[in-house]
Design a binder for these strands. Sequence first.
RNA 1: UGGCCCAUGGUGUAACUGGCAACACGUCUGUUUUUGGUGCAGAAGAGUCUAGGUUCGAGCCCUAGUGGGCCAACCA
Length: 669
Amino acid sequence: MSEERKSLNFLEQIIEEDLANGMPKENLRFRFPPEPNGYLHIGHTKAIGISFGLGEKYNAPVNLRFDDTNPAKEEQEYVDAIKEDVSWLGYKWDKELFSSDYFQQLYDWAVYFIKEGKAYIDSQSSEAMAEQKGTPTQPGVDGPFRNRSVEENLDLFERMKAGEFNEGEHILRAKIDMQHVNMLMRDPIMYRILKKHHHRTANDWCIYPMYDWTHGESDYLEQVSHSLCSLEFKPHRELYDWFLDQVVTEDKLRPKQREFARLNLSYTIMSKRKLLKLVEDGVVNGWDDPRMPTISGLRRRGYTPTAIRKFVETVGVAKRENVIDVSLLEFCIREDLNKTAPRVMAVLDPIKVVITNYPEDKEEWFEAENNQEDDAAGFRKVPFSREIYIEKEDFKEEASNKFFRLKLGGEVRLKNAYIIKAESVLKDANGNITEVHCTYCDGTERRVKGTLHWVSMKHAVKAEVREYDRLFLDESPDSHQDKDFMEFINPDSLKLVEAFVEPSLQDAEVGQRFQFQRLGYFNVDNDSSSDKLVFNKTVGLRDSWAKVKPQPAANTNANTNKQKPQQQSQRKAIDVIQKLGKKYTNLPEEKRLKVRTEILELAKDVTYDEVEPLFNTAVKKVGTRIAVALILKVLVENGQTKNDDVNSFIEKALEDKNELLVEEAKTFN
RNA sequence: UGGCCCAUGGUGUAACUGGCAACACGUCUGUUUUUGGUGCAGAAGAGUCUAGGUUCGAGCCCUAGUGGGCCAACCA
């Protein structure tokens, strides 16, 4: 059996290596450590997918640990939202934990640090300390309190804890090295005074530990084996290890921090601070606005956990900065919904069609397939009558053959119903078409080029449809040093539409997803009620017609196509030869000879000017040099004189270590 | 005037040193189709940032350069 070798990402390789080096599989444990100061977004999904994914892969526990060391920013609301999002994605955490659970242990360790001379109280202003700290290129200097006695430090620290001081008066610093190249090692702060109410510990504490001091020790307490975080924490690793060094004992597992590149999505922002600003400024209607890249926003928009997980999986894990194209996200949701969403008919921008030879009072209920991709989906009934709506865009008085929708004198199939032919139009005073008059004929078996969706006017249900466009007009709105991301906000990111939907949708429930045939995927919004249906457009269907049809105005934004122009049908001989030459020396002899004759043949179409720049080809690129030699041979045979440049190229070739090249060079003599 | 990290088609990720650098998205053809969707078949697009070196052989190893990112919050 040939075992399909699935390549491992670098984190999996690290784990495999640890396992190979004797780490028991039972020791594997991960954690996802969000700070409850905002909602989770699609970027977090990557981190979640990595740690929880590893947990699933190795059948190892994953803790959900809230990193709640800053009472000024953190709230219970966020804790709840984060839990909901993680479980909605389908992940199960082992333990729900909080860094604040470890406040006492952290405090005890800090006291131990002081006693060991590894930490001290600094009582300067933050400005003074910042100055002493130096810069990335300049070392820091020791501050005046660096060598306080253990007794004094202990006393001060205790009184900090007791609330005797105001915020900013004293802090506890680790005593490491003010000259260290890594600024994080220049006596980092372990504790600060914060007289704030904490969402879990209330007013028990007025000193709070800093991230660096808390994180590694929390990992250690939980016995997390691999603590995975994003790249910007790389410099913190040294500190993480230093803090661990002070407390680790032989008998316990020592956690390991490793870093991966965070996820960036084109046309969106991923900073919690900036997302919060969109919420606060009312650019969007809350964290779960369907335009937001938050998990709750995507959920409301109609995304599925399956699609999001697939997306994160497809995106991969590595260490280089990346910007993923939103089209990949859209592909993932379409792929999932195509298989699962019931098809239904809705008209968003209606024009009235009257089928003149259909009786006024007649109605028929046709059988319609719910989802041809899913045999179990079954059928439903849709009503048909004399007057229907079709999409305004689906009718033109005149159009080319490329337009295979409805035009005067033309036929089109109504999905699940009859074939109709447009006979005439009615217009208002301004010349706008108000009605299209058609005739139908009964046979439905004939082949007709176009098929339209429609809704019977009499039976249509009104619904509000919310169509979304990207929130930002720039591909990476938050990476311009000279411009604020707010400048790129798309003013038309939300479009409200009064639509008509088929009656089967009357009882659609919040969250249900549908495909409005030929339009896209839509779900029922939270705001929806039986009185007023509200749909969100999750994503449109791929639309190859949109690319062909004459563009009305702007709004081609779906495809800002920056692809390089396609190559000419005929590639230049020199280019083909260069490509062949590249691998020349690696080919098996038989194949090489074949390529050689091919090159000689192609060389007839190469001019001297084209080869000349290749005379300086790097020594290393033997294949290319051989190709050049072959071209020259053809050129010389055809009368090219051997000038100095040619000769020196040949001489150099003769001295080469590669026999193949030398052989070719020899034929010139 | 530093340290660390990174560099493969348009985008993202692969590649056990050894067939023509693969896969996905995107792009383009053709085809099927009662969705201009889906499916199916196919194509174009990369000299693996540059220059040296090691090696019979380098995208992979070494050195230097270039480019990008991160590092000076009592944030995480």
